[in-house]
Write a protein that binds this DNA or RNA. Structure first.
Lengths: 342, 342
DNA sequence: GGTTTTTTGATGTACGTTAGTCAAGAATTC
DNA sequence: GAATTCTTGACTAACGTACATCAAAAAACC
């Protein structure tokens, strides 16, 4: 009832262990007919190589590199911290993690870093991608060098990256709209949108999803054009204060980027009556406090720790050439109210 | 820079491999002073035993048993299916899974099954617990026999189970209230609660959390006493129809158990105007359809696949006597609207 | 046919651990 | 001080796989 081993395969195929080994590891010097006999035996027995024993034998160490944007952003700081925290755990699974940071929103710098990383010949790379042609090329070159690439948090499609690990941002935007629309279903007025930057793919996607659902399901609410807060609290505060000054019928706010501290301050100073319903992104000290004191109603969140673990998991499978469910990588967006704060 | 091995420990402690092994595996015949020397060397080097190599050597197979309630409940059917699906995967990690099913809501039968399972001497047991003194005793006896026990979906505190894997049901109830209250914030009227059975701990907890928040935050809404639908669609349909007949001001419904098909039918036949806001539990074919056609507004869900994987993960760690974060096991409750259905 | 080349088998070592045996050495007992 | 017990070290085999070497067998070539 135990798992079949190479010995069993050798026996069934009526060949020696050496031959099974040659077939298994793609070494040459095996006649096609013999190779097929061995393959048939493996299929018949349902043989699967014991990866742990295999790794033990080859002293395999998975070299994985993370390239992250630096900057004061508390979300990215958490990310970096989480990667560091996983380094300890990963060592147990023979994964050796290295990290480099690059300036945010700078495609050129990111591409340069990826080229540098390629020289260190890692087995896999995890990158928070900036959407840029040069970055796309750098990812493509990594792939060409046999290095597996996974995008994290912000995707880079058609770059050859094997998987994206993060939330579905269009869906997150739709969710925000579904919540905010229902919160405001019996009200008339405007909905304000505060974005970070429309250069970030995840922000663009959130806005897209949000507007889709708002238009389709909650047409009685009037969408204002997005304010670009660049994830900076002061700028967000200024923009929102201006908006409150210009309109007294803002009944809902969707904050899809950073700088929530500024939004709080603007609300505290001059929120209209009734207090607008607010949906924001990322559970941080600011947004948590805002939930608790009732300033925000809901916060959409991605569990970064889970994403990092998930990325490492998928990467290991890719490197082992094990099958990976193509749907893997999408993390469910979490929704927090003041009532289910962890 | 590689991980230290027993050889390194032996060298540093200036003892033989045999002695290190004796200390490591708690065999006797080692003087206290020597043992301490070895321990010091392990600490100094940061030695951690390579579990994969260790398991390979001892041909360890983790025997894990699942005891699940049977019955027509689609939630439990999914659970059983998921356990079966994990069996294949688990085999790769040397985990051998067995499953038994027992009649639902029957503490005596469950306890009997656990006693039977104890005879098969598994390393660990995962059980969907019915809250019952006899079950508590059976779990306690398993623990006494050195068998690790984890409760799944429905907890059984003070039974000695090592962990509970599932959602925080009080928090789920609070979340439901937070959503429903905000959905109905500009309305006046009654809120109906449909439960499965108040004999199930998870249902009791959901109701508790729901009422907590409703009373505290949304006192303008009037809570009706819970209807016990026993997770049966027909009964739920009857109860809700009666409720609609008796009251024309039901503005919100919280369905915290099964039988959502019945709720849908009752709503279709005689929902008041405006259509009540509905929050239900578990994403099934019924609740998904109800979200899509707008009958339900939100569905709280627990990802069973994740729970099963999580339970196996924790169990493996427990059996290896590895440290397990006491907070592990709590799975975030997912929230689905029609806008973020997977 | 004999020779060369290709294919196959036998054998050994290693990975880091478990687990055992046996004998030498040290400490303890009377 | 001798007999006894306890402690320690040296050695071996095993887990399932990888990888290398050498010899034997089989196929291909001229």
């Amino acid at each position: 009832m135990l798992r079949p081993t190479v010995h069993d395969v050798a026996h069934v195929a009526n060949v020696s262990l050496s031959t099974v080994d040659r077939v298994l590891n793609g070494r040459d010097g095996v006649r096609a007919a013999t190779r097929e006999r061995v393959r048939a035996a493996m299929r018949e027995l349902g043989y699967e190589r014991d990866i742990m024993a295999a790794n033990l034998s080859r002293k395999r160490v998975y070299k994985v590199h993370f390239t992250l944007p630096e900057g004061p952003n508390s979300f990215m700081r958490n990310l970096a911290e989480e990667v560091r925290a996983q380094t300890r755990h990963a060592a147990r699974a023979r994964i050796e993690i290295s990290v480099s940071t690059v300036p945010p929103f700078d495609g050129r710098a990111l591409a340069a870093d990826l080229r540098r990383v390629r020289e260190t010949a890692p087995d896999g790379v995890v990158v928070v991608a900036t959407d840029d042609a040069e970055v796309r090329q750098a990812v493509f070159d990594l792939r060409a060098a046999g290095i597996e690439v996974i995008t994290l948090v912000s995707d880079l499609p058609t770059s050859g990256r094997a998987h994206f690990v993060g939330i579905d941002n269009v869906s997150a935007g739709r969710t925000a709209a579904g919540l905010l629309g229902r919160f405001c279903q019996d009200r008339q007025g405007r909905i304000a949108i505060v974005a970070g930057s429309m250069l970030l793919r995840d922000h663009v996607e959130r806005r897209l999803g949000f507007e889709q659902v708002m238009h389709a399901e909650f047409a009685h609410l009037q969408l204002m054009p997005p304010l670009e807060g660049r994830d900076e609290a002061d700028r967000v505060e200024q923009l929102m204060s201006d908006a409150f000054g210009a309109h007294d019928d803002i009944v809902g706010i969707y904050s899809l980027g950073g700088g929530n501290g500024g939004l709080r301050r603007a609300l505290g100073r001059m929120a209209p009556t009734p207090w607008p319903m607010v949906v924001a992104h990322e559970l941080t000290a600011q947004s948590r406090a805002a939930l608790q004191d009732g300033a925000f109603d809901a916060v959409l969140h991605q569990d970064i720790a889970r994403e990092v673990r998930h990325a490492l998991d998928i990467l290991r499978k890719l490197i082992d050439a094990a099958p990976v469910d193509p749907g893997a990588g999408l993390i469910q967006t979490e929704i927090f109210l003041r009532d289910n704060l962890p």
